[in-house]
Design a protein around this nucleic acid. Structure first.
Lengths: 298, 298
DNA sequence: GGCACTCTTTGACTAAAGTCAAAGAAATAT
DNA sequence: ATATTTCTTTGACTTTAGTCAAAGAGTGCC
C-alpha cells in the first residue's frame, strides 16, 4: 500500500470540516422538528423500513440501549406517529410502523429539506449545478470505495456463503444456459493450504468476494470474483483482485490463472487492464469461455 | 434565476446523507477525547484564535448561553487547558487562551484525526486519492459559491466601507503608480436614484462588492467590482456582475460601461467572457486603461 | 416439562447540554 | 454624576441522552 501524502490528508480534513460545519447542518434530515434528535432519528429510521420494523432491528441499526429505545418508541406512539404491534410469528418481538400522521410529518420534513437545498443551489447557474452534482458523485464513489475493507475469511463462513449464493443467482440470470451451483468452490478448497477466500465489507455488509485456489506447483487459480450490484462501478473488483494477487505472492505462486464466461465482457476488459493476458484453456471449466493468466513475479 | 431541478436536489441530499452519516463522524475533530462535546468544541474554537479570544466573541461564534459558556470556560481552566485573563483595555471582557498543556492536547488530537484519515485513504491507490482530492476541491468550491449571497446595501454601510477600504488597499499594492482613495465612489453616488451598491457575504462576512452608478440617460457605470483574496477563483465576480446587470435592467438602463486598469488582466478576460466589448474611453478615468460596455437589452 | 435464551419493559440512576433570571462590575452615553 | 448598557458570574432549574440491572413474557430445544 502506497503511503498517504500529507497533502491528501489535509485536503480531506479541510473538506470535511467545511462540509460538516457549514453544509451538513443545513440539510439535516432531522431538521426543523420540535422533537429531540434521538426521537427524530428513530422516526426517520422507522420510516426508512416501509413495511414495519422490529424494535430489535432498530436497536441494532441505531446502536441504542434496549430500555432507551423502548421508551422513545412509546413516546412516539403516544404522539400518534407510530403504531406498535406484536409480531405475528414471534410474540416476543414488537413491530413498529408509521401511522398516516407520521407519514405526513415526514413528508413535510422532506419537503422543507428539499426547499432548503433548492434555495442553496439557487445561487448557482445550471451549469454549475451539474458540475457540483458530478463532483459530489465522484467524491461519494471514491469515499465508498475507500471505506470498503477486503478481508480474508473462512470459506465456510456466513459472509462467504452469502456472497457465493448471490454470485450464483447473479450468474444464473446472466448466462443464457443458467448456472449450476455445483461449479462453486467447496469451503475446503479455499481453506488453509489449499486456498483463500476474501470478502469485501461495506459498513459490515458483504458486498463482494473472490477466491484463490492452489493448482499444481506454483500456480494459483482465481475464482468467483463478484461485486454486489449496489457496489458496482466503484472499482471494487480491482481491489479484490489486488488482495487475491497479494495473497498469491504471499504463497509464493509464480502465476495466477482464471477463466471467465463470454457473457461477462466487462470482467474480461478489467482482467486485461489489470495485466492479465489471454491463454489457451488450462483446464476444461463448464462456464469457461476465456482463460487468462498473470505472472506475479518477474 | 433558473429553477433548480429535482435531480440536483436529490443528488445533493444523497451526498449529504452519506457524508454526514458515514464520513463526517469519522474525522470529527472533537474525536477521541474523554471530554464532553461542548467542552471539546469550545477548546477547539479557542485554539483557532491564536492570540486569545474574548468570551463574548466565543459566545457569538458558538451561539452559546453566557452562563453555560462561563462555566465551561472555568472547567477548562481548572483542567489547565486554558488561561483566562481580564482584557487590558476593557475590564468587563475576559480573554481566553490555550496553555501549553492545551496546545499539547490539541496537537495530539490532530495527529489522531490525521491518522484516521490516512487509514481511510489507505484503501485507495495514489491515483484515486488525487481524484478524490480534486473532486472534493470542486465540490467545496461550488458549495462555497452557492452559500454566498449578494445583497443590495447602503453605500455608507459598514460592509460597504470595509469592502472599499480592502479594495483600495488591494489596488494600491497592484498598481505600479499606487491607488488614491479619492477615486472611490461617494456613498451618495450609489444611493437611491443615483446608483446601487452590492456586497457579497460569506457566512456573514463581506467578501466582495460592486457598485452601479447612473451616468447620463440610459447609461449605467459599473465600478469597484472586487473579491476578497479568500474568495477568489470561486466564480464570485461573475455573480456580482450578474447582480449589477440585473439591477441595471431594473433601472431600465440600455447599456452599462466600465473601465479597468492594465494590471488587472484577469478582470479584462472576465468582462469579455461575460459579453462586454472594448470601446473607446467614454470618460477620462485616472486608472482607466481599458473601457468596456455591454448592452442590457436587445 | 424444564432450561437456556431472546426480547422487551420498567425503575433508578447519571452526565451532558442548555435555559432563565438576578446581580455585580465596568464602560458609555447623556 | 447619573442612567443605561455591556459583559460576566452565579444559582436554580429543565430536558435530553444514555446506562444498568432486574424482571416478565415468550421461544426453541432436549
Amino acid at each position: 500500500m502506497e503511503p498517504v501524502s500529507a497533502e491528501h490528508v489535509t485536503a480531506f480534513r479541510r473538506f470535511n470540516r467545511y462540509f460538516t460545519r457549514r453544509i451538513g447542518a443545513l440539510d439535516d434530515h432531522y431538521l426543523g422538528q420540535d422533537r429531540p434528535l434521538g426521537e427524530a432519528r428513530l422516526l426517520f429510521e422507522i420510516a426508512e423500513s416501509a413495511a414495519g420494523v422490529s424494535l430489535r432491528e432498530l436497536r441494532s441499526r441505531l446502536g441504542l440501549d434496549a430500555g432507551y429505545l423502548s421508551r422513545m418508541a412509546k413516546a412516539l406512539e403516544a404522539q400518534g406517529m407510530v403504531r406498535i404491534a406484536v409480531h405475528p410469528d414471534d410474540n416476543r418481538l414488537r413491530m413498529v410502523e408509521l401511522t398516516p400522521a407520521g407519514h405526513i410529518e415526514l413528508t413535510e420534513q422532506q419537503r422543507r429539506a428539499d426547499a432548503l437545498v433548492a434555495h442553496l443551489l439557487g445561487g448557482l447557474t445550471d451549469r454549475q449545478r451539474t458540475d457540483l452534482t458530478e463532483a459530489m458523485t465522484a467524491t461519494r464513489r471514491l469515499l465508498r470505495l475507500a471505506a470498503i475493507t477486503v478481508d480474508l475469511v473462512d470459506g465456510a463462513s456466513e459472509s462467504a456463503r452469502t456472497c457465493l449464493d448471490a454470485y450464483a443467482a447473479d450468474l444464473d440470470e446472466r448466462f443464457p444456459e443458467g448456472f449450476d451451483k455445483s461449479d462453486l468452490v467447496r469451503p475446503e478448497e479455499v481453506s488453509a493450504d489449499a486456498g483463500a477466500f476474501f470478502v469485501a465489507y461495506e459498513e459490515g455488509r458483504p458486498v463482494g468476494c473472490g477466491a484463490l485456489r492452489r493448482l499444481e506447483g506454483g500456480v494459483g487459480e482465481i475464482r468467483h470474483v463478484w461485486v454486489h450490484p449496489d457496489a458496482r462501478r466503484l472499482g471494487l473488483a480491482r481491489r479484490i483482485l489486488d488482495a487475491l494477487e497479494r495473497e498469491g505472492r504471499r504463497r509464493a505462486f509464480d502465476v495466477v490463472r482464471l477463466d471467465t464466461h463470454a457473457a461477462l465482457t466487462e470482467a474480461q476488459a478489467m482482467y486485461r487492464a489489470c495485466g492479465y493476458r489471454e491463454i489457451p484453456a488450462y483446464v476444461d471449466h463448464v462456464y469457461g469461455d476465456h482463460y487468462f493468466e498473470k505472472r506475479l513475479r518477474d
